[in-house]
Every structure is written in C-alpha cells, then in structure tokens.
C-alpha cells in the first residue's frame, strides 16, 4: 500500500514541519503559514469522505494541541475536508474508478490552483476567526488571513511544482 504509507509519512512530516518550523515563523509579525493543510489537500480523490473527515480531525487536533488551540484547528480542517469533495467535483471531471492524488498533472494547472486557493482560504478564514473569536480588529484579522493564505498557497504550489510526478 504505497499510497497509505506515503500519506502516513506526509502526515508526520507535515505536522513536524508545521509545529517545529512554520509555527515559529512570525514573518512581519503576523504571517503564520499553515502548510499542514496540504495533507488534506493531497489526499487521494476517492478517499472515503468519513475517513477524510476523521483524518482531518486528527491532524487538526494534533497541530492545534501544539499551538494550544486544538478547537479552531480541528474545526477548520474538518470543514476543509468536508468541502473538499464538492470543490473537486466543481472544478474537475475525475472519471469513475480513477483515484488520483490531486496535483497539477491530475487536475490541470488552473483547476488545481483554484482548488488549493479555495481550500486554503476556507481553512484560514475559519481558523483565524475562531482563534480571535471576535471582529474587534477586523482589518488586522483580514490582513492576517489574506497574508497567511497567500504564503500558504505559494508554499503548497511550490511544493507541488517541485514534485517530479
């Protein structure tokens, strides 16, 4: 089961990278990229929805525990996992029986970019709003969301373009 192993590795690597490296980056004081969402983005398309939901919950809780805010992370990742299928169906035509891993090659460049951008935005919006739990500093909150999303999207697309397959 190479796909399963691959995903387990990806899970561990992404969590470690997120917790040990990215959470310590406070670029410009408030840009904190959340690359670990790549795990959900890169799950095979035909992964059972219930399974992807549970996986999303687990990775959200894991990353969240490290940064002391498990709730918002779990909420955001579960929401991302839930909306993933619909977005895939919206942007791509995957034939029945195929089970590709989302990437530039399987989705096509524009569809993949749209897919990534939408999921990252959902994640970041949910996460930051739940984290602050208020709209008092609305513009600061919005700029945080936008900047973090941009950095995260660039990181994900960069990682994907490096991959040779």
């Amino acid at each position: 089961m190479p796909t399963v192993l691959q995903n387990i590795f990806r899970f561990i690597l992404l969590v470690l990278f997120q917790v040990l490296v990215l959470d310590n980056i406070q670029f410009l004081g408030f840009v904190n990229p959340y690359l670990y969402i790549l795990f959900i983005i890169a799950l095979p398309v035909q992964t059972p929805r219930w399974f992807s939901l549970i996986l999303a919950f687990v990775i959200g809780i894991t990353v969240g525990i490290f940064s002391n805010i498990p709730g918002p992370h779990a909420f955001a990742t579960v929401l991302v996992a839930f909306s993933r299928d619909g977005i895939i169906k919206l942007f791509t035509q995957i034939e029945e029986g195929n089970n590709p891993t989302p990437s530039f090659y399987t989705f096509g460049v524009s569809a993949y970019i749209k897919y990534v951008v939408l999921l990252v935005l959902i994640h970041n919006f949910t996460l930051f709003i739940l984290e602050s739990f208020s709209f008092i500093n609305f513009w600061l909150l919005l700029s945080k969301i936008i900047l973090s999303s941009v950095v995260t999207i660039l990181l994900i697309l960069g990682f994907q373009s490096i991959k040779t397959k």
Partner: peptide, 26 residues
C-alpha cells in the same frame, strides 16, 4: 458523512468553548 461532519465540528466547537478560558468567557 454529514452527521459525522456535524459531530466532529461540534466536538471542535466544544473544544473551542471549553478548552480556552478566553473564548469561553467571550
């Protein structure tokens, strides 16, 4: 799947509300 989704989100939200004094108080 929807129920599972709702279930997980409710757990997350409970975590948000219960686990953090700030969010709890707000």
């Amino acid at each position: 799947v929807v129920f599972l989704f709702l279930f997980l989100e409710i757990i997350s939200f409970t975590l948000i509300v219960k686990n953090q004094e700030y969010q709890k108080s707000v």
